[in-house]
Amino acid sequence: MKRDLALLLGILLALLAALLLWALHATLALEPGPRLAELASARLEETGVSNPVTAVLLNYRAYDTLLELAVLLAALLGIWSLGPAPAGYQRSGPALAALVDWIVPLAILAGGYLLWVGGHAPGGAFQAGALLGAAGVILRLSGEPSAGLPGEPAQRWLVVLGAGVFAVVGGGLLASGFGFLTYPPGQAKWLILLIESAATVAIGVTLTAAYVGGRPGSGTAHNGTGQSRTVQR
């Protein structure tokens, strides 16, 4: 029965894939007409950044990016709603601890660089935030129960920072007559940098907190097996 269904599914999916391949092929076989690419690069100079992908993410389609930060936040809120964080991992040995001491600052530094370089070359808030998150993950793996994150109140402010700054900037521009997320010429670069910096911190904290996997709170991170390992580094 189960095998039959799996077979049926396989056949159906193969047919679907064939259909989709045909559709893609038919589409690609056409003359490539002008798309958004030309338009996007034609107006790149007005965006305040020179990396076209960053221009799309933070200027042309900044609204999407704002909502994407909201999606990230929603996932974290969902994780928090499920209960406190589980106990952390065993404290790392001296060799790993030394490595961690070395890697984490480097990751943070690299994150800062990626954030800055995003304005004109591949990079940007998400890449930088991901590196910060990776630093947090490494800390957690090395036995730091809070993964280097501050206490709950500060953590809450940090995770809303990205979407918050984004939305406040957008709302402020709307209130001052420019329209939502319509940057005034000349100030685009600095506003984007402000938003990106806030977003980087927020993404890093959110990813780390999601990895910690539960609500932060007094003592909850230290129970269970973590009880004897509350010594701060």
């Binding site: 189960k2 269904l5 799996a6 049926l8 599914l9 159906l12 999916l13 047919l15 679907l16 259909l19």
Partner: peptide, 16 residues
């Protein structure tokens, strides 16, 4: 999942 999935893909195929 397999039953629901088969139904779903069947509907998708019929729709196409």
């Amino acid at each position: 999942w397999s039953v629901a999935g088969a139904l779903w893909i069947g509907i998708l195929a019929l729709l196409v």
